[in-house]
Design a protein around this nucleic acid. Structure first.
Length: 594
RNA sequence: GCCCCCAUCGUCUAGUGGCCUAGGACGUCACCCUUUCAAGGUGAAGAUCGCGGGUUCGAAUCCCGCUGGGGGUACCA
C-alpha cells in the first residue's frame, strides 16, 4: 500500500509554480503590493500601484481570468442565486448574524462593476493559513475549500499563507506536502504561498509602532515567574491572568531596561470593555472585559507569536473575511482588539464547526485516514473528496448533493454554513466516490488505477476492455485494482467453498464441452457465448448457473465476478481454455497439488 | 474553576412561527432485475426535533434554565 502510494505521488504532476512565491523573492512582501488596504489611514497611502488588489480583482471578474484556472467560475452563472437580497438580509438578521456579503449584495455589486465603476464593496480577499506541523488534515482541507469557494463565488482572491513562526515545531518539508495536497484537490491559489518566517520585518515594524503608540508595553517577567504565578492561582482555584504589571512601568525605565539587555516580551493593552464578535456562522458572542488578559505579542527572542503575526498579516494582505475552525473562536476577541490597536477594521469572521471521527471524538489517524494524502492512497478521487468535504457543514439546500467545484462555487454562501460539529462518515464518502468513479472514462481510469497495481503482463488493450466490466463493482481505485487483478491474471488457487460445490466429477466433461462449443464461435462475442452456454445447459439438463459457476470458478478462482460471458470475450479463447482446463484437471485428480 | 460555542433519524443534512402526520442523502432491511457479485430500480423501518419551563391562537423554529458535547484559558498554531 505504501509503495503504491508513493508511486501515485510520483506520478502526480507537480506544477504549482505559476504564481510568484514569497520564497523566491522574500522582499516582495505583499505589504508593498497589497498595503493595508483597510488598515492604515487612507491618507498615508498612495493610490497608484497600491490599488493593485482592486485592479486585479476587477480584471479577473471581467472574465479575463489572470491566472487561468479551469476551475475559475465565470461571473455570469454565479448570478443564478436562489435568494433575493431581501430574503438574505431578513434571514441574516433573524438569525442574529451579521450577513457578510450576502448573495443579494453581491449581485448588486456585480452589476455596478460591469459599468466599470469602482465597486462599493471590494472583492473579498480570503486566506488559508496552514501551519506546517502536520500534513493537510481533512479539517484544514475543508477550511481551505470554503475559503476557495467563497473567493470564487464572489470573484475574490484566495491567498495561501504558511504560518511557520514557531521555529521548533515547524517542519519545512511538510509545506510541499500541503501544497501538493491542495493542488490535488483542485484548489489553486491566487497569491502566495507567503511564508511568515520571511516576513519578520513586518511584525517587528508593527511591534515597534504599537509600542511607540502606547498600545503595547514591555513586560519583564520570566517564563518561570509566570509559571509560578499560574500555579499559585490554580492552587487557589482561580483563573490565572497576567497582572498587567508591565503597564505600570514608566516609559523611561522600560526603555532603559530594554537597552541594558534585560529580556522582555511585548504585551497588548487589552481594552477595558467587552468585545463583541459577530460571527457569520456562530452568531454573536460577547466576551466580558477582563476575561482576556494582556496577551503576549512577541517573545523575548523577538519572534512574533501566532495571534500577532496573524493579525499583522491579515491587515497587510487586506483580508476581508476570515474563515477558519471554531477552535479559533475563543481567540477571536484577542484578534479584534489587535486589529483595533493596529488601526484596522476587523474582517468578517466565519468559524466552522469541528470535524469529528465517526465515534464523535476528534478525528485522527486512528479513524483510518485523516490527511488528504491518505485518502489519495486509499484510491479516492479528489472531486469526490472535495464534494464530500463541502457537505460537511455546508448545504446548498434543495437537496443537492453531487456537485462539481464550479457548481459549488456558484452556490456557495457563508450564510448556509451550519454551526454544529459534524462526524466524518467514511461510508458516505466511499459511496460518493463510487458515484464519481462511474463517470470516469475507461482511458483515464486506466491511468489512475495503474499506481494501485495491475497484473504484470496485462496489456493496455485488455485493461481498457476490462475496466468497464469491473468499474460498477468498485467504489475506490483500490477496489478497482483488486477487482481487476482477480480475473485479469490467472487464478493462483480456487476458492475452497467453490471447489466443494462445483468440483463434482461430472463437471469436468461439461467444462470441456463448453470449451469446444465456444471455440467454434467466430467472432467470439459475449452474446454468442451466452447463446452457446444456454444451449449446452439445456442439453445437459442443468440450470445455466450450474454451468456458469464452475466456469467462473475456473476463470477467477472465485464465485463472484463481473458477467462471465463478457469476461470471456475480453480474455479471449486461449486464456479461457488454459484456465478451464486447469480446473478440469484438478477436478479429475483431486489429490494432485494444484 | 472561569470564559465562549454547539445540540433535527445511527451518520451528513433540509427546515428561519402555521405549507411538518419533520423532507433528502449515506447506512440498514425487503422485493425486483439476474449466470455469481456488485451496480441499478422499487419500497420499508428509522427523529415525541437533547431535557424542562416560558412567549404565542399556533414552536423544530423565539426566550430562560438544565444536561451533554466541544473549544479557549501558553514566551504553541
Amino acid at each position: 500500500m505504501k509503495a503504491a502510494f508513493e508511486a501515485v505521488v510520483k506520478s502526480c504532476p507537480t506544477s504549482w509554480q505559476p504564481m510568484p512565491t514569497a520564497r523566491r523573492s522574500p522582499m516582495s512582501a505583499p505589504s508593498r503590493r497589497t498595503p493595508g488596504v483597510r488598515g492604515r489611514p487612507r491618507a498615508r497611502r498612495t493610490r497608484t500601484a497600491a490599488a493593485s488588489p482592486y485592479r486585479s480583482a476587477r480584471k479577473r471578474s471581467g472574465g479575463v481570468s489572470l491566472r487561468t484556472s479551469s476551475l475559475t467560475t465565470n461571473v455570469e452563472p454565479q448570478i443564478a442565486v436562489t435568494r433575493t437580497r431581501a430574503e438574505s438580509a431578513r434571514s441574516a438578521s433573524r438569525r442574529g448574524r451579521s450577513g457578510a456579503l450576502t448573495a443579494g449584495d453581491d449581485t448588486g455589486r456585480r452589476e455596478r462593476r460591469s459599468y466599470h465603476h469602482r465597486p462599493m464593496t471590494p472583492a473579498p480577499r480570503v486566506r488559508f493559513a496552514p501551519s506546517p506541523t502536520g500534513s493537510l488534515h481533512v479539517g484544514g482541507a475543508r477550511t481551505a475549500l470554503y475559503n476557495w469557494l467563497f473567493a470564487r463565488r464572489h470573484g475574490g482572491t484566495f491567498i495561501l499563507r504558511i504560518e511557520d513562526t514557531d521555529v521548533e515545531r515547524n517542519r519545512p518539508e511538510l509545506v510541499d506536502q500541503i501544497l501538493e495536497a491542495m493542488t490535488w484537490l483542485g484548489m489553486t491559489w491566487d497569491e502566495g504561498p507567503f511564508h511568515q518566517s520571511e516576513r519578520t520585518h513586518l511584525y517587528r515594524e508593527a511591534a515597534e509602532r504599537l509600542l511607540s503608540e502606547g498600545k503595547a508595553y514591555r513586560a519583564f517577567e520570566t517564563p518561570e515567574e509566570l509559571e509560578a504565578a499560574r500555579k499559585a492561582a490554580e492552587a487557589q482555584g482561580e483563573t490565572f491572568r497576567y497582572s498587567g504589571a508591565g503597564r505600570e512601568i514608566p516609559k523611561a525605565e522600560s526603555d532603559r531596561r530594554a537597552a541594558a539587555g534585560e529580556p522582555f516580551v511585548l504585551r497588548l493593552k487589552m481594552p477595558d470593555e467587552p468585545i463583541v464578535v459577530d460571527d457569520v456562522v456562530q452568531g454573536r458572542a460577547e466576551f466580558p472585559a477582563g476575561a482576556l488578559d494582556d496577551f503576549v505579542l512577541t517573545r523575548s527572542d523577538g519572534h512574533p507569536l501566532y495571534h500577532f503575526s496573524v493579525c499583522v498579516d491579515d491587515v497587510a494582505m487586506g483580508i476581508t473575511h476570515v474563515i477558519r475552525g471554531v477552535d479559533h473562536l475563543a481567540n477571536t476577541p484577542k484578534h479584534v482588539a489587535l486589529f483595533r490597536a493596529l488601526g484596522a477594521e476587523a474582517p468578517k469572521f466565519a468559524h466552522l464547526g469541528m470535524i469529528l471521527g465517526p465515534d464523535g471524538k476528534k478525528l485522527s489517524k486512528r479513524h483510518g485516514a485523516a490527511g488528504a494524502e491518505e485518502f489519495r492512497a486509499q484510491g479516492l478521487l479528489p472531486e469526490a473528496l472535495v464534494n464530500f468535504l463541502a457537505l460537511l457543514g455546508w448545504s446548498p439546500g434543495e437537496d443537492r448533493e453531487r456537485m462539481t467545484m464550479d457548481e459549488m462555487a456558484a452556490l456557495f454562501s457563508l450564510e448556509r454554513i451550519g454551526p454544529s460539529p459534524s462526524r466524518f462518515d467514511h461510508e458516505k464518502l466511499a459511496w460518493l466516490n463510487g458515484q464519481y468513479l462511474q463517470d470516469v472514462p475507461a482511458g483515464r481510469l486506466a491511468d489512475l488505477v495503474k499506481p494501485f497495481g495491475v497484473p504484470a503482463g496485462c496489456s493496455d488493450e485488455t485493461l481498457l476492455r476490462a475496466i468497464p466490466l469491473q468499474k460498477p463493482r468498485a467504489k475506490t481505485l483500490v477496489e478497482l485494482a483488486q477487482g481487476l487483478s482477480s480475473w485479469v491474471a490467472d487464478p493462483a488457487d480456487w476458492d475452497a467453498a467453490g471447489l466443494k460445490k462445483f468440483g463434482k466429477p461430472a463437471n469436468a466433461p461439461l467444462l470441456k464441452t463448453f470449451l469446444e462449443r465456444i471455440a467454434a464461435i467466430e467472432p467470439l462475442t459475449h452474446a454468442g457465448i451466452e447463446e452457446a452456454a444456454r444451449a449446452l445447459a439445456a442439453e445437459a439438463g442443468v440450470k445455466l448457473g450450474d454451468l456458469a459457476q464452475p466456469v467462473r470458478l475456473a476463470l477467477t478462482g472465485t464465485l463472484a465476478s463481473p458477467p462471465l460471458f463478457e469476461m470471456i470475450e475480453v480474455l479471449g479463447l486461449e486464456t479461457t481454455r488454459r484456465r478451464v482446463l486447469a480446473l478440469a484437471a484438478r477436478i479429475e485428480s483431486p489429490e494432485a497439488p494444484s
